[in-house]
Simulated scan of single mutants.
Amino acid sequence: MTLDEEPTPQRTRAHVILAALITLFGLVVFIVVVRQGRADSAVLFVALPVLLAAAIALTPARTAHGRVFAITTVALLLAAVALHEGAVCVILAAPLVYAVAHGTTALIRALRDASRPYVIVAVPLLLLPGLEGSGLAPRVAPEQTVEVTRVVDLPADQVAERLAAGPRPTAVRSVPLRLLGVPTPVQVSGDGLDLGDRWMFGYHGSSHGPGGHLLAEVDEVAPGRLGFRFTEDSSITGRWFTWRHAELSWQEIGPGHTEVRIQVDYTRGLDPSWYFGPVQQVLLGAGVGHLLDMLALR
């Protein structure tokens, strides 16, 4: 036996029966979650990986973590197909799913190898963080705000002129957006700074369906400030978050220098909050920065 191998645990009927019951329960939970429209809750990203890892860890194997990795990878790819998600969803969720699966495996095997009875109690305790957004537990702070501030080398009146011209398609400069392949608008139209003026952001379609579009309408006008409400959203990003309101303001802070600020309120679509909250905050911050690029405010 090499140092990398784990000693083969003794096969017991109780372990096999428990693993089978956990697997069956996991399948039932998956079906219920999908049918009830809770596929964005923490159940999918935390609870189900816990059940999968627990079932594998309770069965004898020389390299349990290797099997967990392989089966978790297959499960992620199958979920991407079954739930009509793209590669970006799998990439974003994978670190969380792998961490939960391998953490559960390590704990279950440690308790089992120590011949402790706590192994049965560990599974329901590990499932608790996976209840967020499932209906059994409330969502934690789903309404979030992202703010981006940029100082441009333009006087305030020229900033207003560029804003009035509306956004235009431009290459994505943000490294996170490019690396992850996050959908960005490819068809952009609209202009004006008056009440009722509209800006439209269109997205490319994919094999999973049309890319859709996002329509923003000016609903507040004040000196150096605009407010936008979102009247239509059929965009491909609507699965992950919902736009609520946006505010765009600009103020000259010195000769030829203007500070531009965009604040966007949105509702996070994915749970758990402790993982997807910061992830979406970073990605939407990059997306708002891309909007400033489309407004020629670099």
Rank of each mutant, 00 (worst) to 15 (best):
P155W: 08
T231C: 03
E5Y: 11
G196M: 03
V260Y: 00
P60E: 09
R139F: 07
R139N: 11
V90W: 05
V34F: 13
W250N: 02
H102N: 10
S174E: 11
W274P: 11
A222D: 08
G285D: 02
S41T: 12
L292Y: 01
L136C: 07
A164K: 11
G227A: 04
L52K: 10
V279T: 03
A55D: 13
R261E: 03
G202S: 06
G209R: 04
L92N: 05
S207K: 12
A160K: 03
V146I: 08
L92R: 02
D157Q: 11
V88A: 14
A47R: 08
R244E: 10
E232L: 06
L193W: 07
H290S: 05
L18A: 15
I31S: 15
L295H: 08
L27W: 15
P95L: 08
V282F: 07
A286G: 07
T72C: 13
R150H: 06
A160V: 10
V282D: 08
V148L: 01
A93M: 11
A286N: 08
A39E: 15
R298P: 10
V81P: 11
I56A: 13
A137T: 05
D113K: 03
A75P: 14
Q187F: 10
A19Q: 09
A101P: 01
L193R: 13
M1T: 10
V148G: 00
D157V: 11
H102F: 13
G289W: 01
L270H: 05
P129L: 02
V188Q: 06
